[in-house]
Design a binder for these strands. Structure first.
Length: 591
RNA sequence: GGCCCAGUAGUUCAGUUGGUUAGAAUGCCAGCCUGUCACGCUGGAGGUCGACGGUUCGAGCCCGUUCUGGGUCGCCA
């Protein structure tokens, strides 16, 4: 029999296998040479099992065992024995048994690895990414990818069961305006022309609806050439889906059912359906975010009416200029914050362009606040009443335009929750945010841009506002939010050509431009288009949240660094002259 | 593009006010050791202090530039 055949996996063996002859393969986690007795901890993807070599029983075999080093790949045969009472290791799943070796083959030697293969690894991410294959040997990492596999499988089973079919869409496709920066791929056959990698299969899935597939889904790679973040990679995976003859509720129902299955299967946690829904307006007003973390309080409260005539110019001026004054009450945190820490929070909100952070600390000795002297008695008492402030509380106030107030207080809310451990990690903060604005105004481009995408349908009751107050038009768009992360989003699409034309007008595209950019879709729409809508879920973020990591790189087998390079392969790299010549590409010299 | 943090044995770190030969733990190598599982004991090897330049009699340490990694703002329909 070949020396790499095995009969069992390490982690699957137990007292039930006592006395059995087994063959095992794997990597050497650790060896302990006691002189006449030698132990090898053998690791495969299922776990670790101890193998024993005894010099008295087989001196030749013992000599081979002494040559074994960490991460060698070996093949071992032997009999499963029970450990003596005093040799049992209760911290190991296989700690009651061991293999009494009668054969050992070194299949492959290994150099001393630059990182240890263990779960509580303390090593720079630099090294983990360069030696990713070693990093991926660690059981915690293997577990992440098993979870990821199980979720993928569950998704395919779920959509199959519900009558969806998976259709693949092109990776080499057409560049589209709007949205993120595209990754471009030069065409050799047609020099000077470029494909773009898809930011999402959006237009293709709509066309599949025109084709009559009715219910489509796909687990698909998407590409966006934007700066990276802890939860953003340039290539990432979406669960993309689209349905015909549906409204928003139908799409949400399907996704809710999926999320329920996922949480039961992966986390053994049930979630009650339907999921809570919150309008965009409410999310912004209460949490200062369109992806609120609803697992804790510290909600924003409006103080604008109380302070509109305030002698404190910071407040009254902000209100005169159409802004607002909002506050959060960090209940019981007043005494826990030093003056230095409060000032640090002031610096923190400046990141989000707040000019300052006003505060009122309700201490045992009374109110301490640098702004109290600018406020009237009745203003202070109204604030106390509105904020429900008690001794021990501290109120933080920001006055500015709405965006700055929402951003800074929304982020301050999260910062305080982190600082004071206010988040119950067992809670599942899963909800829908609905009724997003259809458009926002882009100050740089001096025009409206679609908040979701140009094919998102306005809400029926707001259609008249398209002509008069476009910024107040709400869309049939919905995001699914989990623990403060935007997990996914979607919309019902426009299938009425008149409304579509109106939308293009608002976005500042002439008919010609629209046809140049999206002509293939508009052409398709001419031949019988069912009403349709769908959604896409960020798979990497979902797995991240399911496995409890806060870093998207941990759930991608071969991720990129912040400068979008792969430390293992050293991509991207310089193309050679011949390749460039074939593509008829030349580079300008950097000045 | 902006701001912040980090970079010293294979690894994780310490390194005083700028001063002789840059340390510890762990890992690695060798020897000893028959119930270990963080095995133990003894000994040994191992350094471009990220790179470049400057200040200085003298730089791991001070200054400047730069590279790499991370976080973040802008950006991400």
């Amino acid at each position: 029999m070949a020396k790499y055949k095995r009969t069992h996996m390490c982690g699957e063996l137990s007292l039930n296998n006592l006395g059995e002859e087994v063959s095992l393969t794997g990597w050497v986690q650790k060896s302990r040479d006691l002189g006449g007795l030698l132990f090898i901890d053998l690791r495969d993807r299922t776990g670790i099992l101890q193998v024993v070599f005894n010099k008295d029983i087989d001196p030749q075999l013992f000599e081979i065992a002494q040559k074994v080093r960490g991460e060698y790949v070996i093949h071992v045969s032997g009999k499963i024995g029970a450990r003596a009472e005093n040799a049992i290791n209760k911290r190991m799943k296989t700690g009651y048994i061991e293999v009494l070796a009668n054969d050992l083959t070194i299949i492959s030697k290994a150099e001393t690895p630059p990182i240890y293969i263990e779960d509580d690894l303390n090593v720079s991410e630099n090294l983990r990414l360069k030696y990713r294959y070693l990093d991926l040997r660690r059981p915690v990492m293997q577990n992440i990818f098993f979870v990821r596999h199980r979720v993928n499988k569950l998704i395919r089973d779920y959509f199959d069961k519900n009558g969806f079919i998976e259709v693949e869409t092109p990776v080499l496709t057409k560049t589209t305006p709007e949205g993120a920066r595209d990754y471009l791929v030069p065409s050799r056959v047609q020099p000077g022309k470029f494909y773009a990698l898809p930011q999402s299969p959006q237009l293709f899935k709509q066309i599949l609806m025109v084709s009559g597939f009715d219910k489509y889904y796909q687990i698909v790679k998407c590409f966006r050439d934007e700066d990276l973040r802890a939860d953003r990679q340039p290539e990432f995976t979406q669960l993309d889906m689209e349905m015909s003859f549906v409204d928003a509720d139908d799409v949400m129902n399907i996704i809710e059912g999926l999320m329920k299955d996922v949480f039961i299967s992966i986390k053994n946690q049930d979630i009650s359906l339907p999921l809570p829904r919150m309008t965009y307006k409410e999310a912004m007003e209460r949490y200062g975010s369109d992806k609120p973390d609803v697992r804790f309080g510290l909600e924003l409260k409006d103080l604008s009416d109380i302070l509109k005539d305030s002698e404190f110019k910071v407040f009254s001026d902000a209100l005169k200029n159409g802004g607002c004054v909002k506050a959060i009450n960090a209940e019981g945190c007043g005494g826990k914050l030093s003056r230095k820490e409060i000032d640090a929070l002031g610096e923190f909100v400046k990141t989000y362009r707040a000019k300052g952070l006003a505060w009122m600390n309700f201490t045992e000795e009374g109110l301490k606040s640098p702004i109290a002297k600018f406020l009237k008695e009745e203003e202070i008492s109204s604030i106390i009443e509105r904020m429900n402030a008690k001794t021990g509380d501290i109120i933080f106030i920001v006055a500015d335009n709405k965006k700055v107030v929402y951003d800074s207080l929304g982020q301050l809310r999260l910062e305080l929750a982190r600082k004071f451990n206010l988040i119950d990690e067992n809670k599942i903060g899963l909800l829908w945010v609905t009724e997003f604005p259809l458009l926002e105004y882009d100050e740089e481009e001096k025009r409206y841009v679609a908040m979701h995408h140009p094919f998102t349908s306005p809400m029926d009751e707001d259609i008249e506002l398209l002509d008069t107050e476009p910024l107040n038009v709400r869309a049939k768009a919905y995001d699914i939010v989990l623990n403060g992360y935007e997990l996914g989003g979607g919309s019902i699409r426009i299938h009425d050509s008149e409304i579509q034309q109106k939308m293009f007008n608002l976005l500042g595209f002439s008919k010609e431009e629209a046809w140049k950019k999206f002509g293939f879709l508009l052409e398709a729409f001419k031949y019988g288009t069912p009403p349709h809508g769908g959604l896409a879920i960020g798979m990497d973020r979902l797995i991240m949240l399911l496995t409890g990591t806060d870093n998207i790189r941990d759930v991608i087998a071969f991720p990129k660094t912040q400068s979008a390079s792969c430390l293992m392969t050293d991509a991207p790299s310089i193309a050679d002259e011949k390749q460039l010549a074939e593509l008829k590409l030349k580079f300008e010299k950097e000045e």
